[in-house]
Structure formats: structure tokens, C-alpha cells
């Protein structure tokens, strides 16, 4: 572990002199049909890119050349060229794509198609559709195990996390969670899979080897009704120590000790907080606030909200990479 850490530190050092915050964040604005580009050095929006209808899921490609954004109402995924910051091409996703994930090599894209009860597989190089997996009703959350062997898909009305073998494309297990599971995230060491249930109000911690829920994390905020606490986005620090869970209309991000699964703190952010992403140096966590049209910046070490950046209408997804 130490060796790997050291190697990582050296790699970082080799990567160049450290104006470490030369990062760029892309935020999808669900209602605005735009993507806001944020410079994390200045914490300002440097560009607003017009995209298709209802942009939600958004990710950098592994090679950093493109930002992929699912535009659900156009039934496609658009590719934003990060050099020109313009839409360059589209991918043949199934109907109403929402969230997606790439394999480690950046070759295959797995897309959840809400309307079709399927997960679509796309060859990123050829930009063609290469297969489908039938899953539950309203597939949404997507994750890949760190060893690349398992693809996880959550289905919102079926209330399950489906475990799909990435080699055979067969479902190998289904784990029942609480109502409306929306997001799935592995710990970096692969020891735990976390799934958020928006309506159930919980996060299920799943043992990925045994396919069982080992712990259900619940949230209690004084003065707030249970119904207002709706967990959505999850981010876990690379060292696996702290997890952040966006609580939707509770307007807070929960800070959880990822080892003990105890909620340590609630950070007040904007209204209807959706999804989040770390800066690559792990110093900041950016979260999208759907109803207040902004992004909150959380200082990860201090566990404090330090900044708010105004973006487009109804920000939803976010992805960050080096500039």
C-alpha cells in the first residue's frame, strides 16, 4: 500500500510542477440544455456549451479527449470535444439514457436506458452499439468493480442492484435494496458497494462477493421530515475513509465515516443536491444543486462548504479532470 502511495506521489510529482488546481469541471444543466464549464482555479464558469435535450449523466472519457453527456430526451449521448469545447459527435445509446460508465480501458461504455429496461453496451472506439443486457424496471445507477469484472446496475422501480458479469454479460446476482435506487459506487479497494435509495431514504452497503446487504445507513436531520431526506449521489474518497452522500431535497451532503458507516456530519449546500465529483487531487468535492442552479464546493480536509458557483438551469451531473 505504502509503495503504491509512494509511486502515486512520484507520478504526481513527475506529472509536472504543481499548480495543482488546474482542473476543469463540466456540469450538465438538466433544464437549461447546456453544460457549464468551471475553472477550479478561479471558481468561475468559463464557457456554457449548448447540448441536446435534458442533459444528465456526464463523464470524461478515460483518455480525457471527450466529455460524454447523456441527453435523455434526444435518446443519445453526445461527445463534447474537450479541445474545442463543442459537441463533436453522438453515440448510439438506447432510448432515454441517463447514467453510464466506462470500463477502465475506456473501450466500452455501459449505458442505463430508463425507458427500455436495458443496459446498452457501446464500443467507444467504433462508436457503435455492441449489445444489450435486460435488467429491471427503470435502470439508472451504474458502477464497475475496481477489478473490472462486475458491472452494477440499479433499477428504480424493481429496487435492485443487478450484478452483471462484464465478460459474459449475464446477470449473476440481484440484491434487493430500498425504494428507488439511484446511484451505485464501489470503494476503491472493491470491498464494498454502496447503493443510494432515494425514496427509501437509505444507503445500502453491499458485500460484492457475497451479494448481501451488510449495513443500511440511515439519516436523521433535526427539523427535517424523513420524506425530505432522499439520498442520491455518492462519492467515496480514494483512501476509502470518508464517504459523501447527497441528500436531495434535504439540501445537505452527509459526511460518513466509511469504515464504521456512521454519519459524522451534515454539510448544508444548495437546494435539491444531486451528484458530485472530486477534483483529481482529492482536495475539493463539487456538488450540483438542482433547484438553486449552483454548484457548492466542499473543502474535503476541512469538511466545509467554501464556495458556491452559479451555473445553468437545474444542474444535475458533474465530472472533473485535469485541464
Amino acid at each position: 500500500m505504502w509503495v503504491r502511495c509512494l509511486a502515486f506521489a512520484i507520478a504526481l510529482w513527475l506529472a509536472g510542477p504543481l499548480p495543482a488546481r488546474a482542473f476543469i469541471a463540466y456540469v450538465s444543466n438538466e433544464k437549461g440544455n447546456t453544460v457549464s464549464v468551471i475553472d477550479t482555479d478561479k471558481w468561475t464558469v468559463t464557457k456554457t456549451i449548448k447540448v441536446g435535450q435534458r442533459p444528465r449523466g456526464i463523464e470524461f472519457t478515460v483518455d480525457g479527449k471527450f466529455v460524454l453527456v447523456a441527453v435523455g430526451d434526444d435518446d443519445t449521448i453526445q461527445m463534447i470535444d474537450t479541445a474545442t469545447q463543442e459537441v463533436a459527435d453522438t453515440l448510439p445509446s438506447g432510448p432515454d439514457p441517463e447514467l453510464f460508465i466506462q470500463d477502465k480501458a475506456g473501450k466500452i461504455l455501459y449505458v442505463a436506458n430508463e425507458n427500455d429496461n436495458t443496459v446498452t453496451l457501446i464500443d467507444l472506439e467504433k462508436r457503435t452499439r455492441i449489445g444489450d443486457v435486460q435488467v429491471g424496471v427503470e435502470p439508472e445507477g451504474m458502477a464497475i468493480s475496481p477489478d473490472g469484472k462486475l458491472l452494477i446496475n440499479t433499477s428504480e422501480t424493481t429496487n435492485m442492484a443487478h450484478f452483471i458479469d462484464t465478460q459474459t454479460h449475464q446477470i449473476v446476482a440481484n440484491v434487493l435494496v430500498d425504494s428507488r435506487p439511484r446511484f451505485a459506487e464501489f470503494k476503491r479497494d472493491g470491498s464494498e458497494l454502496w447503493v443510494s435509495s432515494e425514496i427509501g431514504g437509505t444507503v445500502s452497503v453491499i458485500d460484492p462477493a457475497k451479494h448481501v446487504v451488510t449495513k443500511k445507513i440511515t439519516f436523521e436531520i433535526p427539523g427535517l421530515r424523513k420524506e425530505a431526506i432522499q439520498p442520491v449521489g455518492i462519492s467515496i474518497t480514494p483512501d476509502g475513509k470518508i464517504a459523501f452522500v447527497a441528500l436531495g431535497p434535504a439540501n445537505r451532503v452527509a459526511v460518513i465515516d466509511a469504515a464504521t458507516h456512521q454519519v459524522e456530519k451534515y454539510l448544508l449546500v444548495g437546494q435539491r443536491v444531486w451528484h458530485m465529483a472530486f477534483t483529481p487531487d482529492g482536495k475539493y468535492l463539487l456538488v450540483t444543486n438542482g433547484l438553486s442552479n449552483d454548484v457548492s464546493v466542499i473543502d474535503v480536509a476541512a469538511l466545509k462548504v467554501i464556495k458556491t458557483v452559479q451555473v445553468g438551469e437545474l444542474p444535475w451531473g458533474i465530472t472533473i479532470a485535469k485541464q
Partner: peptide
């Protein structure tokens, strides 16, 4: 139909 989509896994 929705119940049966879920039901096929159970």
C-alpha cells in the same frame, strides 16, 4: 408487467 420484470429476478 413491471412486477413481472422484477419477478423474473426473484
Amino acid at each position: 408487467e413491471d412486477n413481472n420484470t422484477t419477478g423474473k429476478f426473484l
